[in-house]
Design a protein around this nucleic acid. Structure first.
Lengths: 350, 350
DNA sequence: TTGTATGCGTTATCAT
DNA sequence: ATGATAACGCATACAA
């Protein structure tokens, strides 16, 4: 105990107990008398003892590190707020309980993407994995992970994925419905919709909610112009240009995420449209930019940080061998979303 | 080798060599015959062997994990792009060489902030630490870290800090000078400047460059209205309102970062000003929002991801015990910045 | 160029 | 309620 950092043995010696006892106290184990516990804690304090996490990992067979997989894509660079928020939430939750978070960018267009993820699992670096779109929607990948019984949580997964592994999502269909209802109540009748990438199932569900609201209002969904973007600002610019330059311009434009909505606003500005009088634009996610942009964006707030945190918490339980908290719908944990009304959507000019 | 995952001993047995030899091959050690290397590699492949990183960490006394400290602050929530970009760059660099990155949010207003960082160091979870502002400017903290000889790199540190520990920065003074020169050449004579928080020294240097440019142009720096914000969009809104509602409104407004510049644009929009004809606004950092906003922001591009990556690379060398790469200016690594001219700044209306 | 012996600091198992 | 002992899988100094 002379030279280097104090070890558990130094603490044990000072407290006059055995090594295991110190371990028990530190890990909140049962069967420790209060007197002994105090003595150990005092020794820990006096020696400024810190557990050696690498030794603990080796001996315990657990790394106390969670992995987060997100999609990397030249198009998506730089890492949009969407992923950052989920990551940040997960990181917070991890820090609170002494876990670490490792993040891995995987190219979603790589043919080996599923292999790459399985490789990460086999590296044994992580006790559990958090998957974000589009990986959280990859049924084959999820089945593979399930087959090796590796703890995993899918964030913002669509319905099919939700039945395979534990997940954390909002009700995207309902959110799409509410957003469309809002526009309908403002008096809009001519719509356009910019979808995102196909693999992102929960974003597709937003479109389904849109269709349901239209049908309910007696408007044929086929009357709406529907295009597909790639979630990026740039694609929002381009597709909005195509839509707005066409004949029979819509009065309301719904975008599957905020970045594209901001791109659409950009195009509308360039065209000299009066916003929101001549065009209402709404987004999805409520990322910070929606508040910053002019006019401020009406959108659906999605509690991304909370979702990331919840995903991590589910893994803590799984890793500890505890029975998973009961989820509302089978394996699916639904968190509440919220319509945020700002100034980018108003009644259409007559 | 029957049941669990294959270990290094399994590989050694299959290859017909000793354990160390396998270790050497895996770690690129010297003194291995080509024949033996091939045999080992073949065994590794056949067994699908993966090193156990926790065991390696324990035995080697190194964790292969780098830590990143960033400032957390209710005001700064959510984690602005600035930090995300640095983190992302560091993460990329780490992934490439099999390192992990642990991130720690520390409240910059906490009285124990220096203690918290030292605590993280003492946890011995990390082989090295990357500090971002304002921690990268905390001379006392840096001296403490240096005293315990812990590998550290300061990102975007000011001059004083640059003389204490290795750092990665742009030349902020020169950047501020160039930005101001651009406005002077456009014909501006009446300026306002919104600074950031005091602890962020490199941002203060931008102001020094501004002063130098003004003096060189024969304009008294005292003629410029100077206010201090907190780097946030909100503070940009509020301070711009104060400045623009005053008498003798400036024709050019320089902000110490993009978020505040975007806030200033927001206020200008609200006031109904014609941009950029009636007011030129410029920012700093070239975060994604500067391209998205209307009008697109003239700003200084700072290669944040590169800076994060460079910081990590410096630590790889230090950790490996290699002689640190020679930096251009003592311990300071300077990376190039770039003036990005967009549409938010033009000649002032006459 | 290759191998032997030892230790890293903790947790788990089983005993008392 | 507490303890003795054995892994955990690898790297390192040193020997050959």
């Amino acid at each position: 105990m002379g030279s280097g950092k104090p070890t558990i043995d130094d603490v044990a010696a000072l407290a006059g107990v055995a090594r295991v006892t110190v371990s028990r106290v530190l890990n909140g184990g049962p069967n420790v008398s209060d007197k002994v516990r105090q003595a150990v804690l005092a020794a820990v304090e006096k020696l400024q003892y810190k557990v050696n996490v690498q030794a603990r990992s080796l001996a315990g067979g657990k790394s106390r590190v969670l992995g987060l997989i997100y999609s990397s894509d030249v198009e998506t660079e730089p890492n949009s707020f969407y992923y950052s928020a989920i990551e940040l939430g997960a990181l917070r939750a991890c820090s609170q309980v002494g876990f670490q978070l490792g993040t891995h960018a995987v190219n979603q267009h790589s043919l080996r993407k599923a292999d790459l993820v399985m490789e990460i699992i086999r590296s044994r670096r992580y006790d559990g994995l958090i998957l974000t779109p589009p990986f959280s929607d990859d049924a084959e990948l999820l089945e593979n992970i399930k087959a090796v019984r590796f703890p995993v949580v899918a964030v913002s997964a669509g319905r099919p994925a939700q039945s395979i592994v534990p997940s954390v999502s909002i009700d995207d269909e309902a959110a799409g419905y509410e957003l469309t209802r809002h526009l309908l109540l403002l008096g809009h009748r001519r719509f356009a919709f910019i979808k995102g990438l196909e693999g992102h199932v929960s974003a597709e569900d937003r479109y389904l909610g849109f269709v349901r609201a239209l049908e309910q209002a007696g408007i044929a969904p086929t009357s709406a112009r529907v295009e597909r973007g790639s979630f990026t600002f740039r694609s929002g610019i381009d597709i909005a240009a195509r839509i707005l330059n066409g004949s029979d311009r819509p009065t309301a434009l719904i975008c599957a995420n905020d970045d594209m909505a901001v791109g659409a606003l950009f195009t509308a500005h360039k065209m000299g449209l009066q916003l929101p009088r001549e065009l209402s634009v709404v987004g999805f996610d409520d990322t910070p930019v929606s508040e910053i942009i002019w006019p401020p964006l009406t959108t659906i707030h999605q509690p991304l940080k909370t979702m990331g945190a919840r995903a991590a918490e589910i893994l803590f339980d799984t890793v500890s061998g505890e029975p998973p908290q009961p989820a509302e719908h089978g394996l699916a944990n639904l968190v509440p979303h919220r319509l945020v009304i700002r100034e980018s959507a108003s009644s259409p000019s007559l």
